[in-house]
Design a protein around this nucleic acid. Sequence first.
DNA 1: AACAAATGTGAGCACTGCTCTTGACTTACG
DNA 2: CGTAAGTCAAGAGCAGTGCTCACATTTGTT
Lengths: 262, 262
Amino acid sequence: MPEDSANAAVKAAKENAGAAAAASRPRTPRERARARTVADILRLGREHLALHGAAALSLRAVARDLGVVSSAVYRYVENREELLTLLLIDAYNELGDEVDAAVGAVPEGDFGGRFAALGRAVRGWALREPSRYALLFGSPVPGYRAPAERTTGPGTRVIFALMAILDGAFRAGQLSVEGRWSPAIAAGLGGDLAKIRAEFGLAVPDDLLARGALAWTSLFGAVSFEAFGQYGEETFTAREELFDHHLAVLADVAGLPAAAAR
Amino acid sequence: MPEDSANAAVKAAKENAGAAAAASRPRTPRERARARTVADILRLGREHLALHGAAALSLRAVARDLGVVSSAVYRYVENREELLTLLLIDAYNELGDEVDAAVGAVPEGDFGGRFAALGRAVRGWALREPSRYALLFGSPVPGYRAPAERTTGPGTRVIFALMAILDGAFRAGQLSVEGRWSPAIAAGLGGDLAKIRAEFGLAVPDDLLARGALAWTSLFGAVSFEAFGQYGEETFTAREELFDHHLAVLADVAGLPAAAAR
DNA sequence: AACAAATGTGAGCACTGCTCTTGACTTACG
DNA sequence: CGTAAGTCAAGAGCAGTGCTCACATTTGTT
């Protein structure tokens, strides 16, 4: 039954990818070769993704580049969806790494600076990798549904980082919209916010939490507009300045103090 | 030479579609039949688009539904791109119509209310037509480049409506962020804003114009998050309340007075 | 009626994802 | 050491895609 063995192999590979660092290094030369091939497929897939976009990602093309017949890659990757999922996780993690690094490079107490660093990291990665950004935050790929159990982890790293900044600022007494007008929080929304606060052990009150959510979606709105070419060709030429302005206003909206410096 | 005639026909159809209302109604029964067929193709295309997404839009499937052999539709539509363009314009106009209607239903002087109506109209349409919204504001369809000369017109209706609201409010002395902190406008950005102000005959000063741009991208950021399923399944259940909250904060960010009522 | 324009047909090319059989090879165990 | 299990690449094949082309048919006009 070549089916079963093949499936088993694919599953093993999946678990390896999932456990990643934690898993033991492949022992037998066979497993080593297999791991190398899977890594090659991922690398080529990343290239194709970056060049032609997610919807145009073709297993056959990857196979050609790998110098192998198309059906052979099915030994390593269950199907096109599986490859997309692997690339999705890969991209989420790369973005997460860059955001974490950027945030970590700013002093812990400079919450405004950390927020700006997060925003700029997201934008920088998005503009450098528009196709992969599109896979994460653009229109859903038709016929593809990301498996939540594998993608929510890496997929929530940015919002986690943002929440950490806001919560840290609040606990340090540096997050406030005191004296400013704010809309009332409706009952249902209040419930959602309470659940979020409990789940992640946050101290931030409703109003500021809702504003944080706005800053979050607004950040990605601004980045998406730029990455997806919604600004047209000529409307805005000083896009970095525009983004920095937006970022500063958003920090203020969220209740953060201005960044220490740039 | 069936080529030439076919191309000529397609071109004629294009011009008809372009001139739309201005063009005279098709006179000969042949032209009537042709117009009907093109309209049918568009209707079926709209359905397929809504059901399966832009990247999965198939001319062959449309031909099947039309009860005709696949190559026949090329008599009416140059190629898949052309159909996508037609659907793009169609969607832009439907969204524009709904936004205009929603905004027009609010008293002219209630600028906050008009802004809220615009936002809710965009969200409503996006949630009702996620695939078509994705075509307009999601990741670019791979290998497809919208022809600017045909799409910028309908594609800018929403931002035009928004600018009209903000400019009207400013001229009425109801747009201000007086007394609030605002980031400085960098030189390049100032140039862009000046160009925009001149081109559209706006009175809104730099700071407020930049804030308007932020409100614009933020609005679509919030809508996209919801339409593209970025919130996950459970994080936010009271999404309309969340959106209304965001909209209220955004209006405040833009310098608008609170809406008169709902 | 004759002609030409417009329209529909079906075959065909090159591509896609994916399945399945076949043959070869590597590894591990008795 | 030899055999059996496990692994893997190849290639044919199916169903689908966009698109072109030669041909046939319908339609409107002269």
